[in-house]
C-alpha cells in the first residue's frame, strides 16, 4: 500500500507517520500542526463569518440554518450549564467545539494521502524526508495550548466574579473551613488542594483529547499495516471502515467533552465554594 511500509516494515512506517515536520525555531516548531490547525481555524471562521454576515432574521437559507443549528446547540448546552452573561462564553465554547471537530476530522483523511501527494509532486526522495502529521489534536502542543488558554480564562472568570481578595481567600479557606488559629494551620493545606484542583483541569482536558486522538491515529496506522499484505487486505479494509465509522463518534464526542467541560469549569470558577 505505501512505499514506506514496503521498504521499511510497519515499524518504520509508523515511526515515519508519527514524526512531526519540525522547523528549527527556538525549541522547535511543528509546522504541520500549526499550519493544518490554522487553515482549519480559518476555514471555520470564514464559513461561520460569511453565514453570520449574511444572516437574516427571516427565512434562513439551508447553510444559515445549518450554522444556526450548531450555534443553537452549543448555546443550549452553555445555557444549561452556565447561568450568567453568555456573550463571551458561548463564542468560546463554539470556537472550541468547531475547531476541535475540524482538527479531529483530519483523522479520517487517508493516512498516506499527503505522502502520496508529496510523492507525486516532488518525487520519492523528498517524500521520504518530508514528515507531515495531519491531526493537530494528536499533538500535545495543540491540546495543551487549548487547555492552558482555557485555564487562564478560568482564572479570569474567577477573578471577575470574586475579585482578587475573594479568590485569594477562597484558595486559602476552601475546601476545609475552620475558625480561629486552626484556620491558619489549614490554610497551606487548602492552598495545596486548590493548586492541585486547578492544575488538574487543564492537564486532564489536554490529556483526554490528546490521548483519544493519538490513540485513534495509531490504530489507523496499525490497520494500515494490514493493508500491506494480500492475505490481510480484505480484513484490513473492513477494520479500517469500522474504525473510521467508530472514530466519527469519538471526533464529535471528544470535541463536545472538551467544550462542555470548559463551560462547566467556567461555571464552577464563577461560583463560590
Amino acid at each position: 500500500m505505501s512505499t514506506e511500509a514496503a521498504t521499511g516494515g510497519l515499524n518504520e512506517y509508523i515511526t515515519h507517520h508519527l514524526t512531526h515536520n519540525v522547523v528549527k525555531l527556538g525549541t522547535g516548531f511543528h509546522l504541520d500542526t500549526w499550519l493544518v490547525s490554522l487553515v482549519l481555524g480559518l476555514l471555520f471562521v470564514l464559513w461561520f463569518g460569511l453565514k453570520a454576515r449574511k444572516a437574516t432574521a427571516g427565512v434562513p437559507s439551508k447553510g444559515q440554518a445549518f450554522v444556526e443549528i450548531i450555534v443553537e446547540f452549543v448555546d443550549g448546552q452553555v445555557k444549561d450549564t452556565f447561568h450568567g452573561d453568555r456573550r463571551s462564553v458561548t463564542p468560546l465554547a463554539l470556537t472550541i467545539f468547531m475547531w476541535i471537530v475540524f482538527m479531529n476530522t483530519m483523522d479520517l483523511i487517508p493516512l498516506d494521502l499527503p505522502g502520496w501527494l508529496v510523492h507525486t509532486v516532488a518525487g520519492a526522495e523528498t517524500a521520504h524526508h518530508t514528515y507531515w502529521r495531519l491531526v493537530p489534536t494528536a499533538d500535545l502542543n495543540t491540546t495543551l495550548a487549548l487547555s492552558v488558554s482555557v485555564f487562564f480564562i478560568l482564572i479570569g472568570h474567577a477573578l471577575a466574579a470574586k475579585g482578587g481578595f475573594g479568590f485569594g481567600k477562597e484558595l486559602l479557606t476552601a475546601p476545609f473551613h475552620a475558625h480561629g488559629p486552626l484556620a491558619f494551620v489549614l490554610a497551606p493545606v487548602n492552598l495545596f488542594m486548590n493548586i492541585i484542583e486547578w492544575l488538574v483541569k487543564p492537564v486532564s482536558l489536554a490529556m483526554r483529547l490528546f490521548g483519544n486522538m493519538y490513540g485513534g491515529e495509531l490504530v489507523f496506522m496499525l490497520i494500515a499495516g494490514l493493508l500491506a499484505g494480500w492475505v490481510t487486505f480484505v480484513p484490513g479494509i473492513i477494520a479500517n471502515t469500522a474504525w473510521a465509522i467508530f472514530h466519527i463518534l469519538i471526533i464529535l464526542l471528544q470535541a463536545f467533552i472538551f467544550m462542555i467541560l470548559t463551560v462547566v469549569y467556567i461555571a464552577g470558577a464563577r461560583e463560590g465554594h
Binding site: G28, T33, G49, P91
Partner: peptide, 22 residues
Amino acid sequence: NLTFFGQMISFGILVWFTMKFI
C-alpha cells in the same frame, strides 16, 4: 515546544473573531 505558543495565539485569535463577528 514553540508550537504550544503558536497554537495558543491561534486559539486566542479564533475566539476573538468568533466573539466579535460570528
